[in-house]
């Protein structure tokens, strides 16, 4: 059976805001353990798609399956409980709580299992902060963090929920090149050693091309391409919609 190792199946999913078709009949599958990049120009509907999958928006049409169960009309907290974690493009830190407490909130809830005690949650939170290199900032209040640190916090908190599937919304925006490399190796590590399926939205093209096993491209709410990084880079539709001529020229001159 083909669907057996499918972690996430999206079938003709649509979201209309009045006349605007933010997401228009999008279908795709993500296999267990895959690392998938989701790209598209601004306003292509990437974040809307994420919001549909995680239940923050209700669909106009279509279905979403996670581990073969229908999660189309499931509320965000249920979605998190069955093992889908996400980060927000505009970070949503828990203001008024420390960095550690933020991540502990993730560890205390998240994927349903035995609820952790406060102490276990603290331990889990420290592990996650260690991974993202935020451990030395655990006692800061979130108001004191820089934007890149906010992104790291979002990622730590999402990981603390023990997800099967992690949806990352532009976690690398605003990072410096060396930091992007760190983030990339972290995402790869999460995917390979911890066996978490990951879908990530990213504008940093180098990042998407270098680690994605597969890329899905959206434009004006429609899926216009899907394939390996090499296929995507060569796909004329994608080039036209998103990458533009400059990227291709640079690629040629570099290669």
């Amino acid at each position: 059976m083909k669907e057996n190792n499918a972690e996430l199946v999206v079938k003709t999913l649509s979201k209309h805001f009045g006349a605007l078709r933010a997401v228009d009949e999008v279908s795709f599958e993500v296999k267990r353990g895959e690392l998938v990049g989701l790209i598209g120009p601004n306003g292509a509907g990437k974040t809307t798609l994420l919001n549909l999958i995680t239940g923050f928006l209700s669909k106009t049409k279509g279905e979403v399956f996670f581990q073969e169960r229908d999660i189309t009309s499931t509320t965000p907290d249920r979605v998190a409980k069955i093992g889908i974690a996400r980060t927000f493009q505009i970070t949503k830190p828990l203001v008024g709580m420390t960095v550690e407490e933020n991540v502990m909130a993730g560890a205390l809830f998240g994927r349903a299992g035995r609820p952790r005690s406060i102490e276990e949650a603290r331990k889990k939170a420290r592990e996650c902060l260690e991974l993202t290199g935020m451990l030395d900032k655990k006692d800061l209040s979130v108001g004191q963090l820089t934007i890149p640190d906010m992104k790291r916090l979002e990622l730590s908190r999402a990981m603390a929920t023990d997800p099967h599937l992690l949806l990352l919304d532009e976690v690398m925006a605003g990072l410096r090149p060396t930091e992007i490399d760190e983030a990339l190796s972290l995402i790869k590590k999460l995917n390979e050693t911890m066996n978490i399926t990951i879908i990530f939205i990213e504008h940093v093209m180098r990042a998407v091309m270098s680690i994605s096993q597969r890329i899905i491209v959206l434009d004006h709410g429609k899926k216009i391409a899907e394939g390996s990084p090499e296929d995507i880079a060569r796909n004329p539709l994608v080039i036209e919609a998103y990458l533009g001529k400059k990227y291709m020229e640079r690629r040629k001159s570099n290669g």
Binding site: T54, F56, T75, P76, D77, R78, A80, K81, A85, R86, F88, K92, P93, L94, V95, G96, M97, E101, M104, A105, G106, L108, F109, G110, R111, A112, P115, R116, S117, I118, A121, R157, A158, T161
Partner: peptide
Amino acid sequence: SRFGYAVRSIKANEEAARALGIN
């Protein structure tokens, strides 16, 4: 308590709280 974390998370950011699995 764990419940207290849920309550405080909601005060801090209701959407983030939901994304973490808090009903």
